Structures are given as C-alpha cells and as structure tokens.
Computed example of a mutant assay.
Amino acid sequence: MSQPATPLNEQEQNQLVKQIGRAMLPALPPGWQRVRAEYRAAGRHIEVDLAFAGPDGQWRPVRPPMDMVQLLGQLRTGMYEPVRGTWLSAVYEIEAPAAFSVDFNAEDEPRWRNAPPLIGFQDELRTFPRQDERIPEWLRQRLGLPPLPTPVEPEPEQPAAPVQQVQQAQEGELRTAHVYDGRDEEGRPVVNRQAIDRQLGDALLGYLEGAPVVLAARDLDVDEFVPTDRDVPLNFRTDGAWIWAGAVPHYLRKHGLPPEPDLVEHIVARGFRLGEVDEATRERAVAMITGGA
C-alpha cells in the first residue's frame, strides 16, 4: 500500500485552510455575502462544488478555481492519519466579511453527484490505508469486504451505574450515530429499522434535543428524503457516550425515522436522563466530528 506524504501539523493545517479561503475569492462577484465549497473524494475521483449567495440570499453556482481544488487536495493528504485514514468530504463556508467554518467527514458516505467506480474506492484505501475496524460499513460494502464481527458484550454483573459514572466508564469510547443505514444504487438513503410508537418517539426527542450542542453551523442542510426542503440543522450533540447529528432528531420528528437501534437502547437504559458532559468530553467529541480524533 502506498503511504501519503508527511502529515501537516496543526499550524500548517490552519495556514492551508486560510489559503483555501483566499483561493475562493477570485471566483466571486462583488457584493457576495456567503460562499460554500463542497469537496468530495474517493481515490482519484474528485467532485468539487462552489456556490455563493448575494444580498437576496439565493445560492448561485460558480466554477471552482483550480488553486482552491488543489489546496483542498493537499489538505486532505496532509490530514491523513494511519489509524483512521483521512476525510472523504469537507464543507467550507465563509460569511462576509471574514467569518468561516470547515466541517470534515471521515466516516459517512459523501453525497456524490456521480458515485465513484469501484477502482476509486480501492484507490482510496491504497492511498490512505486505515485500520480495518475504521473502514465504515458503507465503504466495506462498496469494496465487497465482509462486515466486521459484532462484538459480544458480557452480561452485566452489577446494577447499572448512575449516569455520571457511566460517562466516566465510557471515556474514550464515544460512538457516532448513523443517520440512516446506507445508500442505494442511485445514492438515496436506505433505512432498515423497526418503527417505534409515538410515546417512545417523544421521549427520545426530549433526550436527543436536550443534550448539549458541541458543534454547529449557521446554515441548514438539505433534507435527504425531501431534497426540495432545506431545513436540517447542521449541528452535533453528545451525551458523553454518543455523538449524533442534528439530522437524527430532525428526521425522527419530521419523518418518524427512529435513531439507530443501539442508540435507542442506550437512551432507554439511561432512563431518558441526561447527565452532565464535562468540557474534556465535549472537546473529544468535537475532535471526532472534525476528524481530529
């Protein structure tokens, strides 16, 4: 397997992020208010979108400058880590005059315009190898790899600990909830979960929406099930054991889509009670979301 170039340190990454922002500007007309760049890659398959909004708030696509595309590729390579690989997609947003945010995704399948061919996913692991357990299920399916074995959890020998104690016991074991279960051949989300009743759904919503927000963007994302709607909150919450995107409670409330079963069981086991989430745990959650873990 090939090995990426020397990784960038945090200062070098920050400098490159700023260069990427400056590289967008030549493509923008006078009077722009916001700009959003999306970069998606698997091996040598790369997709880049750039759009801006003016005073009327309407988004208009523009041609991405080649400098911006190349710098994003350098950042992706420079952020590679042997255990977890590197990110597969990124969203870079700027709000005039100088506010910006960058979100990196290393786990979920990007929303491709055109799904990469098999060789693209093969190239991804050849160029950016990662530990087997860090290969997400959707990528394993794309590559024809067998699923990871389900770990067998021993029966508890003692009564459940209070919420605060559970958080301490699970330190370093934050899990990220999947919004849905994969995508079909046309790129649409696939859901294979047992329906839940209204009472349980309401209790889950109270828990999911009551946990502290650790990362948020000002914009709203497109509803994967109703692409004409752009009403999905771009935020992440954690209860100290799990991390979930704002899409999880949003889709539960709007479409009745329950969270993944393991997260539901976790919430029920806690009696729908949220405990305190300390600052160190919040920082670990942000690091996982942004690809720094």
Rank of each mutant, 00 (worst) to 15 (best):
G31E: 12
W32L: 07
Q33H: 09
Q33L: 09
R34Q: 15
R36Q: 14
R36N: 10
A37W: 02
E38N: 03
Y39K: 03
R40N: 10
R40H: 10
A41T: 12
R44M: 09
I46A: 02
I46R: 15
I46K: 11
I46H: 12
E47L: 04
E47P: 05
V48M: 12
V48A: 13
D49K: 05
D49N: 10
D49W: 03
L50C: 01
A51E: 15
A51W: 01
F52P: 01
G54T: 07
D56C: 07
D56F: 07
G57M: 08
G57N: 06
W59S: 03
R60M: 08
P61A: 13
V62R: 01
R63A: 14
P64W: 03
P64L: 06
P65W: 01
P65G: 03
D67W: 00
M68G: 03
M68I: 04
Q70V: 10
L71R: 13
L72M: 15
L72A: 12
G73T: 08
G73A: 10
Q74K: 13
L75R: 08
L75E: 09
R76Q: 15
R76C: 07
T77R: 10
M79Y: 01
P82S: 13
P82E: 14
P82Y: 14
V83D: 15
R84A: 14
